[in-house]
């Protein structure tokens, strides 16, 4: 048998690799939409690459979260609690990234404002994933590359919220999501 920690490391590498690829391709798309140096064909290729890499990394996130949960007792460590919280945030942001690209379509890069917003979501999701990886690195190796930046958080303390308040928060956020999905007018694909 392979230990859950080993599977966690494997799936994390898959996730971070594909996510990094997606981020780089997205940033290049944004740059191309402003500078127009590479041509339409290259931009289309970058956009497709970013999209499918994002879908792949989205598939990896639940695997990473499950193997991570199986490889340690989160209730005994504030660092692991923070990992679980950031996992939820990362998954939400990354679903949003894939949803946005699917809704707006490949022509979204013709709208500079949309391009900036989409790239912003991609970078936010990736930063969250980088924080997760940084926490894992601190736990296993005692240090993180993030320390080079000087202001990288270590998440030694976790919020202490009761079960009842957590339930209220979950219900409120679920309500907000349902309102957005079923009440707000649906988005439209950007036409060229």
């Amino acid at each position: 048998m392979v230990a859950a920690a080993t599977l966690h490391a494997f799936s994390t590498e898959m996730l971070v690799g594909s996510m990094t690829f997606s981020v780089i391709a997205t940033v290049l798309c944004l740059g191309e939409s402003m500078l127009e140096k590479l041509g339409e064909k290259a931009q289309r290729g970058l956009d497709q690459s970013a999209y499918y890499a994002a879908i792949f990394s989205l598939c990896c996130i639940p695997v990473v979260a499950l193997t991570g949960t199986a490889s340690g007792d989160a209730s005994a460590s504030p660092v692991l609690v923070n990992k679980m919280l950031l996992s939820g945030l990362c998954l939400g942001l990354w679903i949003g990234v894939v949803h946005g690209r699917r809704t707006w379509g490949p022509e979204m890069w013709s709208n500079r404002k949309m391009g900036f917003v989409h790239t912003g979501f991609v970078c936010a999701g990736y930063t969250t994933a980088a924080m997760l990886g940084s926490i894992g690195s601190v736990m296993t190796r005692g240090e993180t590359v993030g320390d080079l930046f000087g202001i990288w958080p270590h998440f030694d303390n976790a919020p202490s919220i009761s079960f009842g308040m957590s339930m209220v928060l979950a219900l409120l956020s679920l309500s907000a999501l349902l309102v957005v999905i079923f009440v707000q007018p649906k988005g439209e694909t950007v036409e060229s």
Binding site: T103, V117, A176, T189
Partner: peptide, 24 residues
């Protein structure tokens, strides 16, 4: 903690979708 994680997931997703739909 799991509920808080789900709350963050729903909230961040709602924020993304809301902005995307409004802009489109």
């Amino acid at each position: 903690v799991r509920l808080q994680s789900m709350a963050l997931l729903f909230a961040s997703l709602a924020l993304c979708i809301s902005i995307q739909r409004r802009m489109s």
